[in-house]
Nucleic acid binder design. Sequence first.
DNA 1: TAATAAATTTGTAATCATTACAAAAGTGAA
DNA 2: TTCACTTTTGTAATGATTACAAATTTATTA
Lengths: 130, 130
Amino acid sequence: MSSAEILSGHNIRPSLMRVMIYDFLKENRTHPTVDDIYTALHPAVPTLSKTTVYNTVRLFCKAGLTKMVTIEEQQARFDGCTELHGHFICSECGKVFDFDTDMPKVAGLEDFEIATHDVYCSGVCKNCLN
Amino acid sequence: MSSAEILSGHNIRPSLMRVMIYDFLKENRTHPTVDDIYTALHPAVPTLSKTTVYNTVRLFCKAGLTKMVTIEEQQARFDGCTELHGHFICSECGKVFDFDTDMPKVAGLEDFEIATHDVYCSGVCKNCLN
DNA sequence: TAATAAATTTGTAATCATTACAAAAGTGAA
DNA sequence: TTCACTTTTGTAATGATTACAAATTTATTA
């Protein structure tokens, strides 16, 4: 299924900018920040505005198409994959890695309506340990 | 064990401000922000500076005495309890609740040095569901 | 105790991510 | 084409956090 079709399927009109940003998130599984996205796409689309990137990722997240990753930082990161998986941030290099996990146990929140589950870890990654 | 002793045990000199801030975190399990802490203590200590609160919570977190809770917000929250537990944020009222959980499964990070585990959930709390 | 050194606290100014907002540009229908 | 509507853009505002140096407090030494 094309990105345009995926966007349409979530009631988001597949404009050029939106498709580009969605493609970027799909192809770059590095959990980019808004600035990362802007910097990567700006050369190809000089008229791109950072506000548009902010608006677009917010739109995507509201539609459940992408996920926001807030992990010990003041800069939000975005993830094109919404399947359940954990995020590990390396305190040395700052890179964010995915890992496999399972649905965490949640006890004591009876009568709460739980919409999202997130598992975060931090430490030092393999590369930085050398 | 007194707060002063706990601070000393972590190689933090137990100054008046530090003990007050630590006590506040121990007694108020509401995951307060820096501003919450400042606003609560300021009447009693009019000379308190917000910078001091920032410095102090950073010092505590570095020493492992408190934990930072970054959950879909641009404002960091602080938790005086470092035992393993999950955090739930209500998308309606913004309150953060603790819940029981267990150590999440982490697969695929062999050779990584994992220092922290965090489980976050979001949704609508019991009160807001009415 | 007085003098000195070290650590803590404070206030101001700077930084930086994010949002508000209104104008401009683009898109599609009649 | 014209009109209504949506998207995109740029600028300015907001607000959390940090940098930094001065002021204050605390501990140490003589």
